[in-house]
Design a protein around this nucleic acid. Structure first.
Length: 501
RNA sequence: GUCUUGUUAGCUCAGCUGGUAGAGCACGUCACUUUUAAUGAUGUGGCCGAUGGUUCGAAUCCAUCACAGGACACCA
């Protein structure tokens, strides 16, 4: 039963009283002619004027009431719009007869959205304010806002009712503005380089392009299951086969796996594919991309992240095998021997799965001993072929691939490689993954014969990369949970909601 | 999935080893024409997350469940 709360009842009553006096509590008759930020900028000279005011200027601004200080016949009110917060000065004698006492003091309150007109002045305490001569209620808020000082801190409420979080917490708004800028800048960066933005299917007949468990849905008309995509990779490469030479897609991927501080079931990535280039070129464009972001976001290249400090002027590059010993501290004579790695893992009290092949074990060593130590941006290169089913083999050493992952602040940010374009090799890699699947690896890559057929028509030598946008935004905004960079993070439904459905 | 911490008024939080529920903000009423979390006076406001159990008596102890935070596992 909605609206039974006594505070809500009280506020509904106030809306009724307003209506009875011909005041629409949900008016759409806004005459706003400037934003609060613009008002503050344009009138920054008032401080120097005679009496610190200019009655010849007139502005109309709108916003939500955040603070309300009534002192008898005069009041100070703070209203907030998207651009900022403004103090307004409201007096009984500057409003129509009776309005101040009968409505402003009684029926208008914190949370309501109002519109005011008046002239700029500076208060005794030196705050540029607006001297109100017209005041109109635009929207009555029938639910009360959270407490004005502590705001809303309960994470569950903040995520479930993000609108309240946004009303109460300016820094949260800032984070999402930054997120929007990151996406916009990313798009502009790649467009300026001549990349074509494309949209590929979100519903796949085969969940390919990554090793992950998919969400399954059903298409009634065709009577077949579809998988929400776990990655756009195989479709973007089909476009390279088709003759587009530089494409990118910024969109959601879906993975049916656990949720934690760095994983949400739907997350945003950019993937881009660039013909006639190699992963070496990707290292260069990635550095350029970060420099571009930092410049346009006005971020310092020494960026704090938690108790770390990340130096974005210090990009490093090191082959994976080498990193195991030079950074991970694992003896060099261990890292190329399956049995020795197994023994080493066991000696460290870690799970050693003897069914794993050498490449997988090297990946384990990396995850265990190296990843978290990579604070400054580091390109880890030359991944083992066993854990890179879609990457091109190195011409010098067929056991490793022309691949890198970029790590920053101990976390994977990007994954890139020169693409495998040999259809026969691709087929056998898929077959290898199928064998792994048969022996219990339920996250091995699916066979995609249609993709192999596409490759058989010839895909130009190409390099491709994926960047996790959410994790990137976390890094740039110093946020430590992916939920804090997603407007509406995945949450379990509450019991009542389930029952009502 | 495992461990762990939490859930008390609209919000932020107290409530000790069981004894009929507390504060601040918000809200109501009164006062107040330069306040900055305005101030002073006064009042209203609770299924103590849910369900069972122990007990003369449970917000408090126990069990189960729900949701959330954190850690771990899983996840290139």
């Amino acid at each position: 039963m909605p609206f039974t709360n006594k505070f809500i009842q009280q506020r509904i009553q106030k809306a009724e009283l307003l209506k009875q006096d011909g005041i629409n509590p949900f008016s759409n008759d806004s005459k706003r002619n400037t934003t609060i930020q613009k008002y503050l900028n344009v009138n920054s000279d008032i401080e120097e004027k005679e009496n610190k005011r200019d009655e010849n200027r007139h502005y109309i601004v709108s916003g939500r009431i955040k603070f309300l200080r009534v002192m008898g016949k005069a009041s100070f009110v703070k209203i907030e719009d998207e651009s900022g917060m403004l103090q307004i000065y409201v007096t009984r004698d500057n409003l129509p007869e009776g309005f101040y006492n009968n409505h402003f003091k009684k029926n208008i309150e914190v949370g309501d959205i109002i519109e005011v007109g008046g002239f700029p002045f500076v208060t005794g305490h030196g705050e540029l304010s607006l001297h109100v001569s017209e005041l109109k209620l635009l929207t009555k808020a029938i639910a009360p806002l959270p407490e004005k000082f502590h705001g809303i801190t309960d994470k569950e409420v903040r995520y479930r009712k993000r609108y309240l979080d946004l009303i109460m917490n300016a820094e949260v708004r800032k984070t999402f503005q930054t997120r929007s800028k990151v996406i916009s800048l990313t798009r502009r960066f790649f467009e300026d380089k001549g990349f074509l933005e494309v949209e590929t299917p979100m519903m796949h007949p085969i969940a390919g392009g990554a090793n992950a468990k998919p969400f399954v849905t059903h298409h009634n008309a065709l009577g077949i299951d579809r998988y929400l995509r776990i990655a756009p990779e195989l479709y973007l490469k089909r476009l390279i086969v088709g003759g587009f030479e530089a494409v990118f897609e910024i969109n959601r991927n879906f993975r049916n796996e656990g949720m934690d501080a760095t994983h949400n079931p739907e997350f945003t990535s950019i993937e881009f594919y660039w013909a006639y280039k190699t992963y070496k070129d990707l290292i260069e464009i990635t550095k350029e991309y970060f420099a571009y972001l930092f410049e346009h976001l006005n971020l310092p290249t020494l960026l704090p992240y938690g108790d770390m400090e990340v130096n974005f002027d210090n990009f490093n590059e090191i082959p994976l095998i080498e990193s195991l010993s030079s950074i991970g501290g694992v003896d060099a004579d261990i890292v190329n021997d399956k049995e020795k790695i197994l023994a080493f893992l066991t000696s460290k009290g870690l799970e050693a799965n003897s069914a794993m092949n050498l490449g997988q074990l090297q990946g384990e060593l990396f995850d265990e001993f190296v990843e978290e130590k990579l604070i400054d941006p580091t390109f880890i290169t030359e991944y083992p072929v066993e854990i890179s089913p879609l990457a091109r083999r190195s011409d010098e050493n067929p056991e490793i691939t022309e691949r890198f992952e970029l790590f920053i602040a101990g976390r994977e940010i990007a994954n890139a490689f020169s693409e495998l374009n040999d259809p026969i090799d691709q087929l056998s890699r898929f077959e290898g993954q199928m064998a792994a699947k048969d022996s219990g690896d339920d996250e091995a890559h699916e066979m995609d014969k249609d993709f192999v057929e596409a490759l058989s028509y010839g895909m130009a030598p190409t390099a491709g990369q994926g960047i996790g946008i959410d994790r990137l935004v976390m890094l740039l905004t110093n946020e430590h949970s992916i939920r804090d960079v997603l407007l509406f993070p995945a949450m379990k439904p509450l019991m009542q909601e389930v029952q009502e459905i």
